[in-house]
Amino acid sequence: MPIQERRERERAERHRLIVDAARELAEAEGWDAVTTRRLAERVEYSQPVLYSHFKNKDAIVRAVALQAIGDLAERMRAARTAHRSPAKALRALADAYLDFAATRPALYDAMFVREVDLSFGTAESPPELRAAFGELVAVVEPFAGDDDVETLTEVLWSALHGQATLNQGRRLRPDHHRARVEVLLSRFC
C-alpha cells in the first residue's frame, strides 16, 4: 500500500476518533465539557493534532452534528419504510424523530439548537441534511395535496422540533406527550 494512501487512511481514522470522542463526552457531560484539552487526553493525541483536523471547537461540534443528522436520517428512513400506510409511516417517523431528540439530547442540541455553521435548505447543504429533510418530505408528500410539499414539510419539522425542544426543557406536561403528537399528526392525515 502506498505511503500516501496509508497516511490518508490514518488521518481519516484520527478524524473519526476525535468526532466520536467529542460525541461521547458531550452525551456524558454536556457540551461545556468538550474542550480540546479533554479531547486530546481522551484520544491520546496532542492538541496541535486536534487543530490539524479541526479549526476550533465549533468545527468539532459541526462534525458531530453532521454525523448525528446522518444517524437521524437513517432512523427516520427505517421508520418510514417499515410501513406501507402513509399515516402509519408518518407516525413512525414522528416517533423516531422525537425519540432521537429525547434519548440523544446532546446530539440533538448540536444538530438543531447550538449555533453551527451548517447551511440548511440551500444547494450547499451537506448530503446528511438533504437526506434527513428528504425523509421528512417523503413522509409528508402523500398528504400535501395542493400545498407546497417542502413548505408543509417545514411546518411538520418545526412542530416536531418545538415539541422536542420543549419536552427536553420540561416545559410541557409529560403525561400529554402522546396526545400532542396525535393532535399534530391528525392535521396531516
Rank of each mutant, 00 (worst) to 15 (best):
Q67A: 14
A87K: 15
V113E: 14
G30M: 02
G70M: 06
E13S: 13
D147T: 09
V64G: 08
R11P: 11
K57A: 05
R42Q: 13
E29A: 01
T35E: 05
E10T: 13
V139G: 02
E27A: 15
T36S: 14
Y108K: 02
F188I: 10
F100H: 14
D146L: 10
E150L: 05
A28F: 03
L90V: 04
R77A: 14
E10V: 04
F54S: 02
S186I: 01
A94P: 11
E5L: 15
D99V: 04
A21Y: 10
L107T: 04
D109V: 14
A131R: 13
R37K: 12
E150T: 09
K57Y: 04
A59N: 10
V34K: 04
D175E: 13
E44R: 15
E27P: 10
T103K: 00
V181P: 12
E124F: 05
S158Y: 10
A94T: 01
E24H: 04
R23V: 03
A102S: 15
A94G: 03
L160V: 01
K88D: 11
I69M: 12
A101W: 01
A92K: 07
R77F: 11
E74D: 14
D146G: 06
E141K: 15
E5F: 06
E24T: 11
A89I: 07
E135V: 08
R7F: 12
D32S: 09
A106T: 13
V34H: 05
R178M: 06
E41K: 11
A68M: 09
A21Q: 10
A138C: 11
R170V: 00
L72S: 08
E141G: 03
N167S: 15
S125M: 07
W157V: 00
A94N: 08
R104Q: 13
L185V: 00
E44N: 08
P126Y: 03
R23I: 07
I3V: 15
R180C: 05
A79F: 02
P2W: 02
V43A: 07
A21F: 08
R6D: 09
P2M: 08
F54H: 01
A96S: 15
S85V: 09
P2F: 00
I18Q: 00
A78M: 12
L25D: 01
R170C: 09
E124C: 07
L98A: 13
I60N: 07
L39H: 08
V43D: 06
E128Y: 04
V149Y: 04
V149I: 01
F120H: 14
K88H: 01
L184G: 09
V137S: 12
M76D: 00
D99R: 07
R77V: 01
S186V: 01
N167R: 12
F133Q: 13
F112T: 09
R11K: 15
S119E: 13
A78C: 06
Y97V: 10
V139Y: 06
V61E: 11
R84M: 10
K88W: 00
V155Q: 14
A144L: 08
E5C: 06
C189M: 09
L136Y: 11
A78W: 05
E8L: 12
A63G: 02
D147V: 07
A106E: 07
H53V: 01
R11V: 01
A26L: 02
A63D: 03
A132Y: 04
R75F: 00
S158I: 08
E41H: 06
P48D: 01
I60S: 03
M1K: 13
D99P: 04
R77K: 14
H161V: 11
A12R: 15
A164N: 03
V140C: 06
V43C: 10
R75C: 02
W157P: 03
